[in-house]
Simulated scan of single mutants.
Amino acid sequence: MAPSRNRRPGFSRRAQYGLFLSYVIAGAGALVALVLLALSSVNPPAYAAARATVAELTTPLSSGLAAIGRGLGSIPAGIGEHFAVKARNAELRRELADASRLLQRARTLNYDNRRLRALLHFRERAVQPVVTARLVSSTASSTRRVAVLNAGSWQGVREGQPVQGPEGLIGRILETGPNTARVLLITDPESIVPVRRTRDGLAALVVGRGDGMLDVRSVSLANAAFGAGDLFVTSGTGGIFAPNIPVARVVRRASDIALARALAQPNTLDFALVQQAFLPPPAPKPAPTATPTAMPSPSPTSAPTLAPSAPE
């Protein structure tokens, strides 16, 4: 009689080893997770140091994998661009003709603006860049929206500095290591950015939702109307973000609170610019020191007091 083909894994030495190895890996993973959870609850500074160490070790690997991914992802785009170059060229010519008219108008407005600034003696604070670095990774499934920057305190990066991309605001520096930094994205629920609407200057706040989208909330009007396509830029309030940095665009019409989409997407960016805070915090006031009080000196005209003599 031929043996049955439905043999249990216990008859195979290879299957036994594979099953045992899977149990060992699962148990080790659960143990490491429990240790990290306990460490984050009992000793948050030690957990932050461990997380920074892991980021330092994994950043070179993340940079290499990101470079490989960018290279492989550019192949289809290059092929498509090769076959569509003629149509793209005609479209760019039309856009150039439209842009030339806008450029002439912008030059006129810029000239008038310079003359008015000179008349008003207007002085504008220039924000100095700190460093240009790569965003090597970012969270995609967690409710916290944090990205890792491959530049840290050795490159001059400090906590609270704004991070900007070509399309708009990305976030601000949350933590720094020697060569890495964690960026709190504007889509994080703990991120609040003061903004204004470009068409009428309406003051608002952009708050992260944790799902990749943003909430725009009015701070000056009750039941303010938001229209689809409204563009919001930073207002400069708070002293962290410089004014006029593009932040978000409203998705659909709403009142009081509107759903918006961030203009800068960290998962599509190669480089990010770290800048100094628009208004640095004031220097701490010196502590008052106690001044010694001078003792009153005896008057030179006062006569010395003589002690009474003892009787003889």
Rank of each mutant, 00 (worst) to 15 (best):
F232S: 10
V233G: 07
N223Y: 00
V250G: 11
T234H: 14
V219L: 08
R261H: 09
P243F: 03
D215S: 07
V247I: 10
M213V: 03
S218L: 03
V247R: 13
R253C: 00
A260Q: 08
A222I: 03
S255L: 10
S255Y: 07
S218K: 02
A228Q: 15
G229P: 15
S255M: 09
S218P: 04
G238E: 05
V219T: 14
I240N: 04
D211W: 13
S220K: 11
G227H: 15
L259W: 05
R261G: 08
F232R: 09
S255K: 14
G239I: 00
V251W: 10
R252W: 05
R252H: 09
G229R: 14
S220G: 05
F232P: 09
R252S: 14
V247C: 11
G239S: 06
A248E: 05
D230G: 14
V219E: 10
D215W: 06
V251M: 11
V216D: 00
A248F: 03
F241L: 08
G229C: 13
R217D: 01
L231R: 15
G236P: 02
A262H: 10
M213C: 02
A254F: 07
D211V: 08
D230P: 14
I245E: 09
A248V: 11
A258D: 11
P243T: 10
S255P: 05
A228G: 15
F232Q: 10
G227R: 15
L214M: 15
L221H: 06
D211Q: 11
D256P: 00
M213Y: 07
R217A: 05
L221Y: 03
A260V: 09
A224N: 00
S218A: 13
T237L: 13
V247Y: 10
A225P: 03
G212N: 08
G238C: 10
L221R: 10
T237C: 07
T237V: 14
A242L: 01
L221I: 12
I257A: 03
G236C: 04
A262W: 02
A224D: 02
A262E: 06
G227A: 15
I257F: 02
A254R: 10
A254M: 10
P246T: 13
A222D: 04
M213Q: 11
P246N: 13
S255Q: 14
I257H: 05
D211S: 12
I245G: 06
A258L: 12
G212T: 07
S235H: 04
V247H: 13
F241C: 03
G239D: 01
V233K: 07
G238F: 07
S235P: 07
A254Q: 11
G229T: 11
A242C: 05
N223P: 01
A225S: 12
A248D: 05
M213W: 03
L259K: 01
R252V: 12
A224M: 00
A224V: 00
V251N: 13
L259D: 08
V233D: 04
A225V: 07
F241S: 01
D256Y: 00
A224P: 01
L259I: 04
S220N: 06
R253K: 13
G229Y: 11
F232M: 15
A254L: 04
N244I: 03
D256R: 01
G212P: 12
A262Y: 05
T237P: 00
G238D: 03
G227F: 14
V251R: 12
